[in-house]
Amino acid sequence: MIADSWIERIRGLLELSSSQKEEVLCELSTHLEEEVEELERGGLSGEEASIKVVEALGSTEEIARELNQVYAHGSDKEAILASLPYFLSFLLFSLGLEENMGALIFAGGTVIVAVLVGRTARPPWVLTWMGYSFVLLFALGFLLWDIIFPLALAYGLLVISLFITKVISVVREDPYLIPLISVPPLIFGEWFLEGTPEFKPLTVLGFLALAVLCSIFIMGGRRAKLIVCLTQIFVLSLILGSVGTAGLWALPAITMACLVLREARVEQH
């Protein structure tokens, strides 16, 4: 009972994604149980052993604070990696190279990085690359649309279901991460739907803003992540609004904002 309530206290104090939280708690539980068992073998009662182990482990506040700090802040390198696709988009569109071979190489590169890194581990920075790799997959669908309509339809449905599955797994892990994977396909999906119009200078600057926001997101603490996350959604809305005329773009942005705010409320409690 004492050990369980110690673990539950830590659970309440950790500000981590659900998978990170479960890993931390599993490791601490194993430590606690093994040490209690050892003390019990030495002649202590279960309760005496639990009290001793909990005392040896230390303050739940101190451990949770340190763990929150370690997990919250990404490195400079991770921040650069997360923002790189947006920065390259900014360069491509500001230099008018979006229909150039460079754009295709860039898009292909994002798929390679997303597959290679995402296969073994999934650090948060790779989610931007995953988002961009979906852009290429969607683009192929739009190309097929004019050539073989039934095949394009089947392909489109497959890519959309794959995208939704990925987003759901990200939501389950940490809703704050949704904009990282969702923003690129939503921007470019709308762009393709509108027939790839030329971006306005302010829209191009939006990519630069997203690059900066991504860096802050990776390096910032939990509170900074919430603010950046909502700002990313706001920038997404502005970009989509400037590209498209339909109001449909508002739906994913509002859904994302709701999920993020819900998570923030849960964390506060």
Binding site: V24, E27, L28, T30, H31, E34, E35, A56, L57, G58, S59, T60, E62, I63, E66, L67, Q69, V70
Partner: peptide
């Protein structure tokens, strides 16, 4: 983790005493 605590205690001959939970961060 727990093995590290025990090994540390044994190898330092009880010199290093710290709150075990801080090992994980």
């Amino acid at each position: 983790g727990y093995q590290i605590v025990r090994e540390l205690e044994k190898k330092s001959q009880g010199y290093f005493v710290f709150k075990e939970g801080t090992l994980y961060p």
